[in-house]
């Protein structure tokens, strides 16, 4: 199976409210001492594109194996797409807009 690389969308009260309204609260998982998160996944090619398009982003290869430090507005856009599509399988569509 090909490798999957998560992007962590951390869920604060505001985001949780949006998820609840959309009936998507169950998509959250408790990731870190109770902190809620939604993970969307990239494949290798998508990961490489994300890191190229957003140079401040970083793949945390040592500890979490996740893509971190995407600008906040980018994370907001990904989150909104998750809510809109009611799915975490949105990276293809997101990357088309980049």
């Amino acid at each position: 199976m090909s490798e999957k690389y998560p992007i962590n969308l951390w869920v604060n009260e505001e985001r949780y409210e949006k998820l609840q309204k959309a009936g998507l609260a169950a998509m959250c998982q408790e990731m870190l001492a109770g902190l809620k998160c939604i993970q969307v996944y990239c494949n290798e090619a998508q990961k490489d594109k994300i890191l190229k398009v957003f140079p401040t982003a970083k793949f945390d290869s040592a500890t979490t194996k996740s893509i971190e430090l995407l600008p906040r507005q980018v994370k907001d856009k990904i989150f909104d797409l998750v809510v809109q599509k009611q799915s975490i399988d949105i990276m293809d569509e997101f990357l088309k807009s980049c």
Binding site: N12, L32, D60, S66, L69
Partner: peptide, 12 residues
């Protein structure tokens, strides 16, 4: 968790 992950949370 790493410093990078925490920075990412704060940035969000």
């Amino acid at each position: 968790f790493s410093g990078t992950l925490i920075r990412s949370i704060v940035q969000d």
